[in-house]
Amino acid sequence: MRYVRVETEAELLEALDRDGAHLLSGGTDLLVKMRSGLLRPKSLVDPARVAALRGIEGSANALWIGAATPFAEILASKEVAARAPLLADVVRVLGCVQIRNRGTLGGNLANASPAADSAVPLLLYEAAVELRGKRGSRSVPIGDFFLAPGRTVLEHGEYMRGVSIPVSRGDWIPFFHKVGRRRALTIAIASVGGLTSISNGKAVDVRLAAGSVAPVPLRLKSVERAVAGQALDDSVIARARALAAKEISPIDDVRATAHYRREVTADLVARALERARAT
């Protein structure tokens, strides 16, 4: 295996175009997969010195986070805390100090684990990822980025430049809860995030998303539709709970059973709405 350090996006494109090339970001998932034999790249391409892939920048319309930005920088960013507070809440419970110092937002997304923590807030904020390849750049809504566990729309030779989070309303009531064996370093059994906006006692806008309960992290659209415009009374929340359990497609695995995941996801959706009602 070769290790290739690149300094510019042009060099990155060229290096990734080679057969068996794999991009190395923070390495916190990749090196584990390589050592267990799940992945055998011919070359690792390290873009850590490509300045364009790193950093956080707020403009009038969006918050931009470079794909190679480590989670520790995202957690320390005032811009993120102010404009995407739910992302900061999620990053705070992602991995641990050591992992957040190396692991990157782009790496977490491109790894495409059904349990990728950072996907849930990005789905809720309706972020887009910017991908670049030999044929140019494209912007892909985060909801279309994941195809299956470990698979995304990234094509051979293509890389993620960054994530763009559109400026959204200021009156969201945020919610995120991850269920795992312990707080730190836990791969979620299930996670639910929500953004709810309440006006005159009614949920005028509701977004809900879940991780670890389907092949890819997903928005709970049927629940959102059922709740939108409604007062969050007990009957609406009971309906939301039932729809959430229907919309997901969890599996049994070493961490939990599908049955448990369904129950706990329904509970978390109810809790998100109850929290919004009480705010």
Binding site: Y3, R5, G26, G27, T28, L31, D46, A72, Q98, R102
Partner: peptide, 14 residues
């Protein structure tokens, strides 16, 4: 910054 040295390649720390 604290990192896990088992998850860092030597060549990454040039």
């Amino acid at each position: 910054r604290p990192v896990n040295s088992c998850l860092v390649l030597a060549l990454q720390i040039e």
